[in-house]
Amino acid sequence: MKDYLSIGIQAAKLAGTIIQDRIGTISTDEITQKSVSDYVTDVDVTSEKTIIEHIKKFFPSHQIMAEESSNSYQKTEYLWIIDPLDGTTNFIHGFPVVAVSIALMHKGNIVIGVVYDPTRDELFYAEQGSGAFLNENRIKVSSIKNASLSLISTGFPFRNKQYIDQYMKIFRELLYSVSDLRRPGAAAIDLAYVASGRVDGFFEFALSPWDIAAGSILIKEAGGTVSDFEGAETYLKTGHIIAGNPEIHLFLVNKIRNYFL
Rank of each mutant, 00 (worst) to 15 (best):
A15F: 02
D29Q: 11
P60I: 04
V45N: 04
Y39K: 11
Q20A: 11
E68F: 09
T17N: 08
T17A: 03
H54R: 13
I52W: 07
T25W: 07
D21L: 06
I31S: 14
T50Q: 05
V36Y: 06
T41F: 03
M65F: 14
I31R: 11
R22N: 13
P60M: 06
A15R: 09
I55N: 02
E68P: 02
I64W: 00
I55Y: 14
K49E: 11
T46Q: 11
F58G: 00
H54E: 14
K34E: 12
A15C: 09
D21T: 10
T41Q: 07
H62K: 05
H54C: 10
T50R: 08
R22E: 09
A15V: 10
Q20H: 14
A15Q: 09
S69Y: 14
A15N: 06
I23R: 01
T41L: 04
Y39G: 10
S47R: 04
D38F: 06
D42E: 12
I31L: 12
D29S: 13
G16K: 05
S69H: 12
E68C: 08
S70D: 13
I51E: 01
T28A: 14
I19H: 00
Q20M: 12
I26C: 07
E30G: 04
E68K: 09
D44G: 06
D29F: 15
H54W: 11
E30I: 02
D29A: 11
T50W: 01
I23M: 12
P60F: 14
S47Q: 02
M65I: 09
E53T: 05
S69P: 04
Q63P: 01
E30W: 04
Q63I: 06
S61L: 13
M65Q: 10
E30Q: 15
T25V: 03
T46R: 08
F59N: 04
T17I: 08
Q63T: 09
Q63L: 08
H62W: 01
A15S: 14
E68I: 14
F58I: 03
T32A: 11
Y39V: 03
Y39W: 12
Y39E: 07
S70V: 01
V36P: 05
L14T: 08
E67Y: 10
H62Q: 03
D42C: 12
T17S: 09
T17P: 00
E67G: 05
F59C: 05
E67I: 13
F58K: 10
T25L: 11
G24L: 05
E30T: 05
D38N: 13
S37R: 14
I23D: 05
R22I: 02
H54N: 13
D44A: 10
Q20S: 12
D29H: 15
S37T: 08
T17C: 01
I26E: 06
K49M: 04
I19E: 00
T17Q: 07
I64E: 00
D21W: 01
L14M: 09
A66G: 15
P60Q: 07
V45A: 06
I19C: 05
F59D: 05
K56M: 09
K57G: 01
S61W: 00
T50K: 09
S69K: 13
Q33V: 01
M65N: 09
S47P: 04
